[in-house]
């Protein structure tokens, strides 16, 4: 079983660690480039994407992670993590950058500010219904042809993807780690090379 790191610069790190531990996965937290060398896959947690992006730069992890992504390290990003993996960020800071590992266009706070944050049941292809917790969530406005859409949600303005996968890169606009369901993490873990 590969070791799965959780990027621990800022955000809901311990919830991801807890879910992975429940699944029997060996995990460690990643704050430095050398800690990234110790893991075979990485979860990018929820948090503030601008703060995490800033800290990726100052810690030297940005270049290290870029290199690992080009080597096809499996990654799973939730919320801010999805934003960081995406190829295009709308309504972000002018200088907002992202890794471009996942060919999706995301709109920051696309469902509104905190008072619009919501919970809704989400039907995941091949899995069933899981609880969806959306907190100042990014909305996926467009996906590339290589991207597989595993779940959508219609928030009154037509369906938008909420869980997507492009090869070994997974992204989710909600927070499975804030619920007692481990199903989506299990899908990611089951996809890892043994």
């Amino acid at each position: 079983m590969p070791r799965v790191g959780v990027l621990a610069l800022q955000g809901d790190v311990r919830e991801h660690v807890a879910v992975l531990s429940r699944l029997g996965v060996t995990t460690s937290t990643v704050r430095t480039a050398s800690q990234l060398d110790d893991v075979e896959a990485l979860v990018l947690p929820g948090g503030e994407s601008t703060a995490i992006a800033h800290l990726l730069g100052t810690s030297g992890l940005r270049a290290a992670l870029e290199s690992r992504l080009s080597d096809h390290m499996p990654v799973f990003g939730t919320c801010a993590g999805l934003i960081l993996l995406s190829s295009q960020v709308l309504d972000g800071r002018e200088d907002q950058w992202s890794f471009g590992a996942l060919d999706v266009s995301v709109r920051r706070n696309g469902y509104g500010r905190q008072v619009a944050s919501f919970e809704a049941p989400i039907e995941v292809r091949g899995l069933g219904v899981v609880p969806g917790v959306f907190i100042r969530a990014p909305r996926i406005d467009a996906v590339g042809t290589e991207v597989e859409v595993l779940a959508e949600h219609d928030h009154g303005d037509g369906p938008h993807p909420v869980l997507v996968r492009q090869g070994s890169v997974w992204g989710c606009s909600f927070h499975p780690e804030l619920t007692s369901s481990s199903d989506i993490h299990r899908m990611f873990v089951d996809s890892l090379p043994v």
């Binding site: 621990a8 610069l9 800022q10 955000g11 809901d12 790190v13 311990r14 919830e15 929820g46 948090g47 503030e48 703060a51 919320c79 801010a80 905190q114 008072v115 619009a116 944050s117 919501f118 919970e119 809704a120 049941p121 989400i122 039907e123 917790v133 959306f134 907190i135 100042r136 959508e152 949600h153 219609d154 928030h155 369906p159 927070h175 804030l178 619920t179």
Partner: peptide, 24 residues
């Protein structure tokens, strides 16, 4: 999920934003 109810202002989304700010 066009027909499914979505709920705002739950304890989970309110506490959840605090979770997202951790380490910051």
């Amino acid at each position: 999920n066009g027909d499914s109810p979505s709920v705002i202002g739950t304890a989970r989304v309110k506490r959840g934003l605090a979770d997202m700010l951790r380490g910051g």
